[in-house]
Amino acid sequence: MGNSTTAAPARKQEASGAGAAASRGRKRYSVLTGVDKWQLFLMVGIPLALDLILIWGPTVASVFISFTNWNGYGQITAANVNGIKNYQVLFTQYLFFWPAVRHNLIWLAFFGLVATPLGMLLAVLLDREIRGTRIYQSIFFLPVVLSLAVVGFIWELQYAPTEGFINNFFPLNRTGHMIDWLGDPNINLLAVLVAASWRHVGYIMVLYLAGLKSVDPALREAAAIDGATERQIFFRIVFPVLAPINVIIVVVTAIESLRAFDIAYIINHGKNGLELLSTLITNNSISEASLVGFGSAIAVVLLLISLVPIVIYLSRVMRPERS
């Protein structure tokens, strides 16, 4: 990466400034004028305010609304508060909650056990010096630039019961023998996952390729000279060295699985076997149903689950650097 200035001449350290900064071995600048300080304050303050108002404020508000029976009309008052009723209904009575959780978990499992490993495999294969590796990479990466909504359309052309490619190519389009890829709740999730993986595999491949490129070639050469097989080199040397990127790939996989929405929505609005936590939120609260408090409780469940990969990610990438 480009512009790192490596030479490190003695830092202008001026004996002023205090507070936390000093403890990190860096001193504040005394040369900052009042104007500078104002500019810095605005530079961070305005985006931060936007971030707090539009992202973190609503996140916290979701938690509060989830303890009410608010239906979106008028103001929320104390009379709307109904304690944990929404959660009780959600966990014990609402028929679509556990199926949605299960579908999200299947999504995670499929991505984690099939799509992500396939992406990693392609990365490992393409990392070698083989002819046409660039072309292969481009082809596998191509679906990544498409939105999942378009991916949904493209795969509907494969899956459509009477006119789709699959049912016509393997004669499965006659009444009685037809496989309804998108309408049968036993298989439509799998069908959608194949479509979503089409996009996910390339994504993982690119991330992993970048990781592989960063492995010091000397390590492998040394191992090869010692007579290690290729498989041994990968599993004993490369894979452990890539621990940080492995974690990131696991996290990316988890977050993508929780975010799944577009493709289920475009296929059938998330019903009949395609219920997901994300579609339940919008179907319940941003629709004529207007169960805003209840929908918020689902949002909070999704939030809590999402925080697991997010926290892991942050703790990985934000570790303070000590140079």
Binding site: A160, T162, T175, G176, M178, D180, W181, G183, D184, N188
Partner: peptide
Amino acid sequence: PSGFAGTTWQQ
């Protein structure tokens, strides 16, 4: 028809 759950009313 089989496949009714995967087709729109227009189809």
